[in-house]
Nucleic acid binder design. Structure first.
Length: 897
DNA sequence: GCGGACTGCTTACCT
DNA sequence: ACAGGTAAGCAGTCCGCG
């Protein structure tokens, strides 16, 4: 393993000019113009919050203090339940790396005379793309904004510009690591572990070792992974330590505000904040519930029957009300909102400014799209639940639209309160109940299931090595990027630029089936239509992460520079894989995979453990699931900093080879393979011995873990891929891909589909199946007759619900039906946004669709619905050898009339 | 001027 | 703003048809 540990005396300082005058104009507020890698500069000087000594506390955030000019950390002390600050005392400074030698850089006046320029150093880095050590120049600055992230005048732009002016175009100017946010850079360089325990002793920051957790780590490593070969072991230990340390109880408050609005249908713009804040609710983990109301002319008191533990406070002045909110924001270490970045905190910030608050009295710091707290940690749950990976893998698609109402209904079984009148007009009592309920729901989303959401955030903070605020707002590719960048710094590896990787490794060689995609993906086995009893579904446990681990995939190893590796070919591709070095991605992803599969997943189900421990392990395994599920995808995503198309292509190619070999093996053994998709095989009636042999073969021949995942009493397959139904032993029905389960279809049809599902769940034997068929026919006939005779209870049951992917006018290629309906709504003055669900019915007259709220029953085009009914049920009837037309009483002859 | 064959767009889903 | 593969419905286009 190449490690470059050049000793310090080999490094030589070229230049160190003390304190060139600071240019005040560079400190001005240019927040709005910052690019994606926004540096949020915060100023907070509070001696009481920066102690010389601090008992063990959790590192929860990091940032840069503009007034002190240093990095700071936020530590959560779990006994006092307060946030404390620690300021850097190591003299760490922001920097970038370049291939331009110091003597040439010194000729670039705009660099050397830059007000924030500090000094130059030459250092050595390991360049993994070319397997060599290189000398690079470290350009050190006094201020992170001088490095990058500023639209104009930062060093990462100046260096290439001026170099070309002076030295010409011959040499390629390289800048590395200039887009990393300074506080992340600080975390990486100092090897800090957000989410872990630290203490402060006499001003020094010291990691705190907790014996219980360390014992667990030792046990995992020594007992559970004792057979693991050397290079993965180190990673297993680092990860295990991060995951075994428990999470603290987090003292927090949920905040929701209501704002007066002169136009009932319009929410006031937070940037203008022209209307008063009329109500705020604060629900704390300490049990405190407060409702703050602004006294206004002509508002009825109404019924004030709020629970006795709720404190109601009336304010004559809005200023006092906001000050009260700000006091709470300063008091609680964690503040929870639903959409606070966009609305609540944003509104309070601007409203306070409008009311003449001094900047130092506003505890909110604004970025371009985020609102942070100067003292505490602001978690915007809207941003967290919006995260696709969280939605799909952590919460199993339980909620569809990310609204407080829908998420709360899905996870808590509770709803928002419906107002009888616009917020601005309702009585104090109703306003208080409404606002309080929102804050209670918001709080409950972090407390239900033993604080699952807070713990999940904590685990992700540790894995990603990012501040909690960032983890809750950014996507999985940023989390993965962060822990990979951390590992580069730890190994003294140069973090390559995206174009370096493409230049060295090239692009893809296979052809995708789908037009516009970059390379070929997974295999889907053509299903054998029919009803099949005794089906075992086998699958490879996290196939792609296993491939990345076992086949050593990463930007470093795919198409490496060594001649001797070129014979290590990836099947069906021209790519080869390095035999000399282990890729960083392979080690990091591989060790995470092993910990999840071998330790956390089994332990999460282990009834011998105390339930608290089990819950914690369950949080960990679902956090790992989220990361692992994305670990292959990021290789193939341009937005990922270590984007490496051949690595993505190699992963799916190896996957195809593995599943194909396994199918062939099963068939050789005389087992019927009736279906399969990517990493799964549906085997018809295999014996336990056959399964055992197949599993052992996969282990031996492929080095992959194959397991029997499910047993279906029977499975119903049509000829369509990704489209089947399986009945488990306990009668649970797995429905995959069938139209009858899709969210957009009318409730009327969905209800009948559910009835059929119910009939099928009771079938145990082929004999019972014949009876069930008759039942199904009856059910479909009933549905058909009710439609034909126009016997629906509610026109809403006939509505299709389709999500508007973009604003209506952005559809310039075609105008789908839901867009037509959206236009009709717009014409009626109803606001329609991207992401809205449009509810429409099919009608007889042009344009053949109508928003359901504008339609009447007699306009409905029944034949369109019957057509839809047919195609929905054909997916099942195909497999049962039944004909829709015969069921509804149409003879073959009649079909032609 | 109309209908069938075709392609492309869009959404919802699977792994 | 993690990937590719599949189903389905509809919009829009082309072409034949004396």
């Amino acid at each position: 393993m190449p490690q470059t540990q050049k000793s310090l005396d080999e490094f030589y300082n070229i230049f160190r000019e003390e304190n060139l005058k600071t240019n005040a104009s560079l400190d001005s507020e240019s927040e709005d113009m910052l690019g994606e890698e926004e540096e949020l500069i915060i100023e907070h000087v509070e001696e009481e919050r920066t102690p010389r000594d601090l008992p063990p506390s959790y590192l929860v955030s990091a940032g840069y203090d503009g007034s002190k000019g240093v990095a700071y950390l936020k530590l959560y002390e779990p006994i006092s339940q307060r946030i404390y600050f620690w300021y850097d005392n190591t003299g760490h400074k922001p920097y970038l790396l370049t291939n331009i030698p110091p003597e040439e850089l010194m000729k670039l006046e705009r660099v050397i005379n830059h007000p924030s320029f500090d000094h130059l150093e030459v250092i050595e880095k390991y360049d993994a793309l070319y397997d060599r050590k290189i000398a690079v120049t470290k350009v050190v600055a006094k201020d992170p904004l001088a490095i990058g992230g500023r639209p104009k005048g930062c060093l990462r732009d100046i260096i290439p510009e001026d170099y070309r002016l002076i030295f010409g175009e011959n040499k390629e100017v390289k800048i590395w690591e200039a887009a990393i946010r300074y506080y992340q850079c600080y975390i990486y360089d100092r090897g800090l572990q957000p989410g872990m325990l630290y203490k402060i002793e006499n001003g020094e920051l010291i990691p705190y070792v907790q014996d219980d957790a360390e014992r667990n780590v030792r046990r995992i490593i020594e007992e559970f992974f004792k057979d693991e070969s050397g290079d993965l072991l180190r990673y297993l230990e680092v990860w295990a330590r991060l995951l075994e340390y428990p999470a603290p109880k987090m003292r927090r408050v949920a905040l929701d505000i209501e704002v007066y609005s002169p136009v009932a249908t319009r929410v006031p713009d937070p940037e203008e904040a022209s209307q008063p804040v009329i109500c705020a609710s604060l629900v704390g983990s300490d049990g405190r519930k407060r409702v703050l109301l602004l006294k206004r002319e002509g508002i009825e008191v109404g019924e004030m029957n709020l629970p006795s533990d709720v404190l109601i406070e009336f304010y004559a002045s809005e200023r006092d009300l906001i000050e009260s909110i700000f006091n709470a924001l300063n008091d609680y270490p964690f503040v929870i909102t639903f959409n606070g970045d966009d609305f609540d905190l944003n509104y309070l910030y601007h409203r306070a400014k409008n009311l003449g608050f001094a900047k130092k009295d506003i505890p909110i710091e604004r970025g371009q799209k985020i609102c942070l707290l100067r003292r505490g940690i602001h978690i915007d749950l809207y941003r967290f639940f919006l995260n696709r990976s969280i939605q799909v893998y952590a919460f199993g698609q339980k909620y569809r639209n990310v609204t407080l109402d829908e998420v709360a209904q899905a996870l808590l079984g509770k709803s928002k309160i419906e107002l009888t009148k616009p917020v601005s007009e309702v009585s104090y009592g109703e306003l208080a109940r409404y606002c309080l309920n929102d804050a209670e729901l918001t709080f409950a989303l972090t407390s239900y299931n033993d604080e699952l959401v807070m713990k999940l955030l904590f685990v992700l903070t540790r894995i990603s090595r990012m501040p909690m605020e960032d983890v809750s707002r950014q996507g999985v590719s940023k989390w993965i990027r962060s822990f990979m960048q951390y590992e580069h710094r730890r190994r003294n590896m140069l973090i390559p630029n995206s174009d370096d990787i493409i230049a060295a490794r090239g692009t893809t060689a296979t052809k995708a089936i789908i037009k516009g995609k970059k390379y070929m993906g997974a295999i889907v086995v053509r299903p054998l239509p029919g009803v099949h009893f005794n089906i075992i579904v086998m699958d490879f446990q996290s196939l792609y992460p296993s491939i990345i681990k076992v086949y050593n995939l990463g930007y470093q190893t795919v198409r490496c520079v060594h001649e001797e590796c070129r014979d290590n070919i990836v099947p069906e591709t021209p790519h080869w894989i390095c035999k000399k070095h282990r890729a960083l991605e392979s080690a990091l992803i591989g060790s995470l995979r092993d910990l999840r599969v071998k330790w956390y997943k089994p332990k999460a189900k282990d009834k011998s453990l105390p339930s608290e421990q089990r819950d914690w392990y369950n949080v960990i395994q679902s956090a790992l699931k989220v990361i692992l599920n994305a670990s292959y995808g990021v290789f193939g995503a341009e937005v990922f900093d270590l984007y490496c198309p051949p690595a993505a292509e190699a992963t799916s190619a190896i996957g195809r080879s593995i599943i194909t070999q396994t199918i062939n093996k099963a068939r050789e053994m005389g087992i019927e393979v009736i279906y399969g998709d990517t990493d799964s095989l549906f085997l018809k009636n295999p014996t336990p011995e056959q399964i055992k042999i197949l599993v052992e073969w996969a282990e031996k021949a492929l080095g992959m873990e194959l397991e029997a995942d499910k047993y279906y009493r029977y499975a119903v397959l049509s000829s369509r891929k990704k489209n089947y139904l399986g009945v488990l032993e306990d009668g649970t029905v797995d429905v995959k891909g069938l139209t009858g389960k899709k969210r957009h279809i009318p409730l009327f049809i969905k209800r009948y589909f559910d009835k059929i599902e119910d009939i099928l769940s009771r079938v145990k034997t082929p004999a019972e199946f014949e009876l069930a068929k008759k039942d199904i026919e009856r059910t479909i006939r009933e549905c058909y007759m009710r439609l034909k005779n126009r016997e629906w209870d509610d026109i809403n049951d006939l509505a299709f619900e389709v999500v508007l992917g973009k604003v209506p006018k952005a559809y310039n290629k075609t105008t789908p039906q839901h867009v037509k309906a959206a236009y009709i709504l717009q014409a009626r003055g109803i606001e329609v946004k991207a992401g809205d669900t449009i509810r429409f019915v099919k009608v007889i007259k042009e344009p053949f669709v109508k928003p359901v709220q504008l339609a009447t029953s007699k306009e409905i085009d029944v034949d369109k619905y019957i057509g839809y009914l047919r195609s929905t049920f054909d997916q099942i009837l195909d497999a049962l050898n039944l004909e829709f037309d015969e069921i509804i009483g149409l003879t073959k002859l009649e079909q032609f009339m």
